[in-house]
Design a protein around this nucleic acid. Structure first.
Length: 297
DNA sequence: AAGTGAACCTGAAGGC
DNA sequence: TGCCTTCAGGTTCACT
């Protein structure tokens, strides 16, 4: 599930507990996720303090006081769980999974928070498409996972002009271009579908066709840039507003209710006022695309 | 070069 | 109830 807004929600949820906390112990319950864990993973983290939590695209970045960065990607099914006031830093208590969920608790961070309280932060990931890396802070921008990342879909860098530049000459469908992390970094299948619906653009259209110099193409670029920015900021806002309740109920982070206009709504009436269309589903690059054939052109 | 599809892995949901 | 198939929000890699 985690696209950029979810990762940002996770970051905001973890921040009060992890920022300025000291890592007193780390339990790593298997040798790998998507990739092997870094060499001496636990030893390199134990005793370190976390100076800041940030995010780039869908990557969560935990900055350590030795200037290394713990990079975490949630893949398809990764999530963090917070147990505040955890009584012990002894990982032995958690070495055996007690239920189906705990079977996928792959990493547990034992922390002493800024105010001296104990806390436990657990990474759970059933499909194990997520991963964790340790990267030197000054080498992060050149790291292979970051060197080719495109612009953030938040903020002012993403405007119609930028879309035109990025998509110019591209024969790939708009859907594929928006999913391409080298162009815009952080969009996933859901928010691409939602943004294209908001912009009223057909996901099958060649990306290059919105990058022409005509007034109509310029309007399409402006509309698409606006749709991407607002769909992301709305989702972050929704995550933020549901975050408090969610953390208080069971500590789970990264999943929240969100209402979509097209995603997973095949057969439903189009929500656009005045549109009589029905949401359809097609497959592009092996992934489901939901859109309204009537108002997305 | 650029674009498409398979692969990685587990669990949930639906059909029979 | 159980067995089978299909599908899932991400990314990389191997092909055309």
């Amino acid at each position: 599930m985690p696209e950029l807004p979810e990762v940002e929600t996770v970051r905001r949820g973890l921040q009060p507990v992890m920022e300025n906390a000291r890592i007193t112990n780390v339990l790593q319950r298997r040798p790998d996720l998507r990739f092997p864990f870094p060499q001496r993973f636990c030893e390199r983290l134990c005793g370190r303090s976390i100076t800041a939590l940030s995010r780039r695209a869908k990557y969560l970045l935990m900055h350590l006081d030795n200037s290394e960065v713990l990079v975490s990607h949630l893949g398809m099914s990764g999530s963090f769980r917070i147990d505040e006031g955890a009584a012990t830093g002894n990982p032995g208590n958690f070495s055996l999974p007690r239920n189906k969920t705990e079977a996928h608790d792959h990493v547990v961070f034992f922390l002493t928070t800024e105010d001296g309280a104990k806390a436990k932060v657990t990474y759970n990931d059933p499909r194990r498409f997520g991963f964790m890396l340790l990267v030197a802070g000054d080498g992060l921008a050149e790291h292979r996972f970051f060197a080719n990342l495109g612009i953030e879909p938040t903020g002012n860098a993403l405007n119609g002009e930028m879309i035109a530049t990025l998509f110019g000459g591209k024969k790939a469908p708009l859907k594929a271009a928006l999913l391409d992390q080298r162009l815009i970094a952080g969009l996933g299948n859901i928010y691409v579908c939602e943004a294209l619906w908001r912009a009223g653009l057909d996901p099958r259209r060649k990306a290059g066709t919105v990058a022409k110099s005509s007034a109509k193409a310029k309007a399409a670029c402006d509309g698409l840039a606006d749709a991407v920015r607002t769909v992301i900021s709305d989702a972050i806002e929704a995550g933020g507003s549901s975050l408090r309740d969610y953390v208080h109920t069971d500590g789970q982070l990264g999943y929240f209710q969100h209402r979509f206009n097209v995603y997973d709504r095949e057969g439903a009436p189009c929500a656009r006022p005045g549109c009589k269309g029905t949401i359809g589903r097609i497959v592009q690059s092996g992934r489901s695309t939901f859109f309204c054939p009537s108002c997305q052109r």
